[in-house]
Structures are given as C-alpha cells and as structure tokens.
C-alpha cells in the first residue's frame, strides 16, 4: 500500500506545474493544457482520498470533474478558434481588451 502522502505530493506538483504554465505561457493553447494539468491534480486528490477513506463518492466526483473538464476544453477551444479568426492571434499578451 502506497501511503497517501505520495499521491498528495504528486497532486501538488502537478498543480504547481499547471499554475506555473497558466501564469507564464503566452500561447493560449498551452494555457488551456496547463489548466487541464491543474484539474487532473485535483482529480488525483479526489481519487487518493476516496481510496484512503474507502468512500466511493470521491471517485464519482473525479468522473464529474473529467466530464466538466472536457466540456470546458471544448468551449475554450471554440473561443480560441474565434479569436484566431478575428484577431489573427492567440498570444495572450496581445488580448487585453478589458482594460482601462
């Protein structure tokens, strides 16, 4: 039996890598991928605790989370597609319409 701390550490590492990607990458596709990493970090935690407590609800939530992530990616990619069509870029630094 692998102690739960290992899973949590893995989740934390994944989350931090994802957050780092979201904050630093300029390419919107990469940012979307980083968000997926963060979501999966959460999923790992769900499943780890589910196994640790012997409670199946964590696994159900992980499934929900995967489904929501898939939908989110679909919406996100659609927005990016529209963006690249109209503004001819997906560089986040150049997309700063909502400012002063």
């Amino acid at each position: 039996m692998i102690p739960i701390e290992y899973f949590l550490a893995l989740g934390a590492i994944l989350f931090i890598i994802g957050a780092y990607g979201v904050l630093t990458k300029r390419n919107a596709i990469v940012v979307l991928m980083s968000i997926e990493l963060m979501l999966n970090a959460a999923n790992i935690n769900f499943v780890a605790f589910s196994s640790f407590y012997g409670d199946v609800r964590g696994q159900i939530f992980a499934l929900f989370s995967i489904a929501v992530a898939a939908a989110e990616v679909a919406v996100g990619l659609a927005i990016l597609l529209a963006l690249s069509k109209t503004r001819d870029t997906i560089n986040l630094d150049e997309i700063s319409l909502l400012r002063w």
Binding site: V22, T24, V31, L92, D93, S96, L97, L98, R99, W100
Partner: peptide, 9 residues
C-alpha cells in the same frame, strides 16, 4: 484604474 491592465494572467 491603471491597475486594470486587461492581462488575464
């Protein structure tokens, strides 16, 4: 208002 850069990141 200059704090609002519009940069999501």
């Amino acid at each position: 208002r200059r704090l609002q850069t519009g940069q999501v990141q």
